[in-house]
């Protein structure tokens, strides 16, 4: 099996904006496992990783040791960081530590590469989010070696999008 280190990922040059909130982060920090370590480290360095299956071509998120379609061993691939809102909600009541400061948006984002993932859509009024809206990823540094992919509404829509 190919070693799963971000250094071996083609195109993982860290092109996404990075926002460092290590000192102020009070929300959950992912518990790392041998696979997710690569994913969250890449996020820390400005890359959104997905997995691509060399056997059947399936692309998947979240990362794991097997392809969820054919059970072969997937490889890492850098995603573009562009996606579309599949669905979302504005959370207006939440009691977990770190989430009590007013409404926030949770969305399921369809990446342009295919896989779907969860994220927050930040930096715009919560009522501006729509299904089908284009979104752009950025990376939050939340802890040493751990980044969290996050999203903003894409500033400019393509003319024929």
């Amino acid at each position: 099996m190919r070693p799963m280190t971000s250094e071996t990922v083609r195109g993982a040059q860290g092109t996404l904006e990075i926002v460092d909130v290590v000192d102020s982060w009070t929300k959950p920090v992912p518990d790392l496992d041998p696979v997710s370590t690569t994913y969250f480290r890449a996020a820390h360095d400005g890359t959104l990783l997905i997995q691509h299956c060399p056997a059947c071509g399936t692309r998947q998120h979240y990362p794991r040791l097997v392809c969820r379609h054919c059970a072969a061993t997937p490889e890492w691939e850098a995603a573009s960081g562009l996606g579309t809102v599949y669905t979302f909600t504005v959370v207006r009541q939440a009691g977990m530590p770190g989430f009590q400061d007013g409404p926030y948006v949770i969305a399921l984002i369809d990446l342009d590469e295919g896989p779907r993932m969860m994220g927050n859509i930040t930096d715009s009024p919560v009522d501006d989010v729509r299904i089908g809206a284009r979104v752009q990823a950025y990376q939050l540094r939340i802890a040493d070696g751990i980044g969290l992919p996050q999203w903003r509404l894409a500033a400019v829509s393509a003319p024929n999008a």
Partner: peptide, 9 residues
């Protein structure tokens, strides 16, 4: 790990 940091309830 891919959901809780976003405040999924």
């Amino acid at each position: 790990a891919y959901e809780e940091p976003y405040g999924k309830t």
